[in-house]
Design a protein around this nucleic acid. Sequence first.
RNA 1: GGACGGUUACCCAAGUGGCCAACGGGGUCUGACUGUAAAUCAGAUGGCAGGAGCCUUCGGAGGUUCGAAUCCUUCACCGUCCA
Length: 373
Amino acid sequence: MFEWNTLARQGKARAGEFATPHGILKTPVFAPVGTQATVKSLTPAQLEDLGASLVLSNTYHLFLRPGDELVAEMGGLHQFMQWKGPMLTDSGGFQVFSLSEIRKIDEDGVSFKSHIDGSMKRLSPEISMQIQENLGADIIMAFDECSDPTHSEITQAAMRRTHAWLLRCQKAKKRADQALFGIVQGGVNDQLREESASFVSSLDLPGHAIGGLSVGESKTDMYRTLDVVNAILPENKPRYLMGVGTTQDLIEGVLRGVDIFDCVLPTRLARHNTAMTRYSRLNLQNACYSRDENPIDPQCSCYTCQCFSRAYIRHLINAKEMLAATLLSIHNLHTLISLAAEMRQAILAGSFESYARDALQKIHENKKPEKVK
RNA sequence: GGACGGUUACCCAAGUGGCCAACGGGGUCUGACUGUAAAUCAGAUGGCAGGAGCCUUCGGAGGUUCGAAUCCUUCACCGUCCA
């Protein structure tokens, strides 16, 4: 269990397999995010049709509601939300960052003011492990401190705390059927990243994650940091770049040896009326689509593009119909899931270098889908 | 025929002498979104410039005033009531 096999390699890019109790992850892979035990606006059947393999959920949110013990009583997260494939739960570490207004950090852990009812809640490495064991995902994440990458003193303190917490997570973890991934922090500081990657690599964990990126830093910083970290993380373990989510970042990530991605972007953009296409974005709310008979992308094979026009989707958006969110979520997730699958095929076929170069060039040109009519 | 009340920007609707190009809401348009406090948030919405600049507006016409969406006269239309 939790064996990582590299099937092919091209440059730093890899195609691999990671066995979990709920199936084999074929990488590179993009994972949709289902924070509250649901990928917003989609049913598990729709996710399956999309070819989704790994789905994320969230410790902090499920801890607050409905409660991890309730989920355990209901048979665990897989049974509860009826997702049969591999699952990953985030530890609540990102909420340390995103809910910074209503939390307080100390060496032992973090106290949050619940965003739901204002009551104080406590999260620590041990509590996060306990919650994630109750939830029962295949991959569980170490409780880390994701911090603003631009303040280097804060970043250093956060990184050191993240390391100390990782040791505690490892110690507190009891279930053997869950893989604990450690998280590399260190902001955009190369020395800190090296220190963090070395430390995390030394613990013999089944997989490694890169956190604290795509939180406002420049692309240059992000890609350089990936280079620094992946030069240290061992080749024989999966690498998970947390929270990354644009087509460009997926390609740049795979080029640098990343295997797993997750992001809220496709589903959030979908609810905010924006379609992600291979090389650009389309705001379907724009007036220019009101009489556009084309699908979002005539080249796209997703359900939405097989059936519906831009004009119809724009109508749904303007009428505030929730089907708009569903159709756009299907399309956006398809874009990233199929991109990851194509990259995998290209690596296996030995054509990834030219595939990536061509795709990045078109992204750089912001190439819109070609219309048929 | 008479008595009141009303007519404000795409729609609804505030404003009853200067702080009014005119509150607010809707609609419309545009932008943002990367381990989800996000079916959210921000901006624009008379015209032209596109920094705090100019021009044309508050049913029509005329008038009072230094100054009018706001006061007066008159016309038109709408509503309620009385004949």
